[in-house]
């Protein structure tokens, strides 16, 4: 049996491993040494955008697609999958939320709410 040590990543953690590649990895470390984390994006229907649905571990991109297929689409949730290794996602720092987002809070004139819409225009 495999003596598996599952590495736990918290959301937003970026693993350091250098293992991103679209080629099938033949020589690879066993799972216990840590497969990299991949972020999974699923398109649920034709015409909709790919949406982030979660993350999972895989040795390479090909395996990440297959794992995503099994983990995230087995109940017919999707028709297309994108995977990207988590370390390639750069996230904004939550501590900078103040200067990044708060200045927008009191700029109501940036919302198109000051136009008089004719009655014929629905669903705006």
């Amino acid at each position: 049996m495999f003596n598996t040590f599952i590495r736990k990543f918290y959301y937003g953690d970026i693993p350091e491993d250098n293992a991103g590649s679209s080629e099938i990895k033949k020589a690879q470390a066993p799972p216990s040494e840590g497969w990299p984390l991949w972020e999974i994006f699923i398109r649920s229907k034709q015409g909709l955008d790919h949406k982030h649905v979660g993350s999972l571990h895989a040795a390479d991109a090909a395996m990440a697609i297959e794992n995503a297929r099994d983990v995230y689409t087995r109940r017919q949730e999707g028709i297309s999958i994108w995977v990207v290794e988590s370390k390639y996602i750069t996230a904004s720092n939550p501590e900078e939320a103040g200067e990044l987002y708060e200045p927008a809070a009191d700029k109501i004139y940036r919302h198109p709410t000051f136009y008089q819409l004719p009655d014929e225009v629905n669903h705006m």
Partner: peptide
């Protein structure tokens, strides 16, 4: 419940 890694456990049971 005994797969070498969670994702492959799901794959083999699928």
């Amino acid at each position: 419940g005994h797969g070498p890694i969670l994702e492959q456990d799901i794959a083999i049971t699928n």
